[in-house]
Design a protein around this nucleic acid. Structure first.
Lengths: 115, 115
DNA sequence: TCGTTGTATCGATGTCGATCGATCGATCGG
DNA sequence: CCGATCGATCGATCGACATCGATACAACGA
């Protein structure tokens, strides 16, 4: 009865420690913000802008998407902490938060075991 | 009629060049493979294993998920090029492809403007 | 050859998210 | 104040995906 006390690894469990689930979920949510082609294009456009900032109206037409969709993606990136939002009159200017961007790059590099 | 020849930016379009859509989609698909808490935990467990490799049976129980689910996530990471799969007898051993991992970290860092 | 064990695939299900049109709030020019 | 423009939010829709049980496939031992 119940022959298998150990299922497959008799000597040693070869797997390392499990990262805490909530930590993994927080990291996943951050990375998920980068895992959409439209958001990648938005980041690249904002980053390569002359003054490293852009308003929604500058971003809508080149991507061929509706204004609510662009606004949605910018909100996702802002909520993830990767973009800063500043109202200048009627316009909303978005720019990359360099500190958070660099921290995110570090987190991803560590996850991948890269130095 | 139709007063606005220019919509919002009269002098200069402040946005930078648009990244090609297919390039953005390829990059998004790669990043999406990292944007799931279970896959993050799997990567971390494989990376921190004694011999930097693990088989499915070692990974199923610690995460509390079914074997088909773990197998599915490992396939996603393998299809993304981040894991290598090697059959050793009845077991399938997975390990991180360091070259692809480092390349991915570089791509993300560039996307975020980090050095 | 047969049973056992590890792994992959299939089909179904429920949830999440990308997208849009419509609408609302806010700001500026007159 | 009034009209116009920019941007955010709402509600709906549709496809993508994480998860599971069942099952098929593969490799080993007796």
């Amino acid at each position: 009865m119940d022959t298998a006390a150990d299922s497959c690894a008799p000597s040693s469990s070869a797997a390392g420690e499990v990262m805490a689930r909530d930590e993994a979920e927080r990291l996943a949510q951050l990375i998920k913000a980068l895992g959409d082609p439209t958001r990648i294009q938005l980041l690249e456009m904002i980053r390569t802008s002359p003054d490293h900032a852009a308003c929604v109206c500058d971003l809508t037409e080149p991507l061929g998407l509706s204004q609510p969709t662009i606004s949605h993606h910018l909100k996702v990136l802002t909520d993830a902490g990767l973009l800063a939002r500043e109202r200048r009159g009627a316009w909303a200017w978005f720019s990359v938060r360099d500190d958070r961007a660099e921290e995110t790059a570090r987190l991803v590099a560590h996850l991948l075991g890269a130095r």
